[in-house]
Amino acid sequence: MVKTSLPREEYLISGHFACPGCGAALSMRIALKALGKKAVLSIPACCWAVIPGPFPYRNLEVPLLYTAFEVTGASVSGLSEGFKAMGEDAIVVGWAGDGGTADIGLQSLSAAVERGHDFIYVMYDNEAYMNTGIQRSSATPEYAWTTTTPVGKREFWKKGWKKDMVGIMVAHRIPYAATATPAFPEDMYRKFKKAASIKGPKFIHILSPCPPGWRFPEEKTIEVARKAVLSKVFPLYEVENGRWRVTFKPARFIPVEEYLRMQGRFRYLPEDAVRYVQETVDREWERLLRKEELSKEGPIW
């Protein structure tokens, strides 16, 4: 037997409708390896509403309920309370994209977390409305090209920094919030295992690269996600009851330019914009390390 770093059970069925090199499909595969047969998914309109296919088809070995765009939070609240009333042991998972979480589903997610139902909410973040054709969302990073923030002779790129969803969730005093990416599958697996063992609302933010939307060749999916972590654009950390912990501290960082230049959506970026992004991610990284240091004394919400 060859040793594998992840369990061999598969809950994702091949032949699904995701684009070649899809980061979201891979994230689901790793997440379900950790959650296992007990998972029950609730999915609003997002790429994952398309990936399982039209009616007679399914591509998961676990139950899946489709909901409307703005009600994932309400749906997982109801599912989790219903299973509790029936005395059934199930892990309720809300699986929404960045539009369904940071823009449209934010109010129902906020309410569900505030009420404190027992569920895991996963935001797989491809940084725009990729399913409908690359429209900007509030989780789109600054300077990114999308079809609604076009760049040409005049530069209408996305203005304003990406919305910090883990920060918003931590402000709700959530028991567990974390970031993960499929480029570090063991780290993601461990975070899902931990989330499944904690009672109450849990939030996991997954950076899931999208080859057609980010404009990079499809074989680079893992490389892009890995460079996002190594260049401090997407640090891997978890917040457990207000205790911040950076789960992966790279020994050597790469300049943010290396991450930006391999994606077509940033190809036109002027030098001063790259410098601005570098300064901002450096500052954010320092802030994160300070939070980790300070929260050893007491929780930081």
């Binding site: 069925i13 091949s14 032949g15 699904h16 409708f17 070649p20 399982p52 296919g53 009616f55 007679p56 088809y57 399914r58 591509n59």
Partner: peptide, 17 residues
Amino acid sequence: APIARVPTSEIKRSSWR
């Protein structure tokens, strides 16, 4: 309610390649 039962592995996806 309608329940989807046919696994997507019924479709050979190799033509995308």
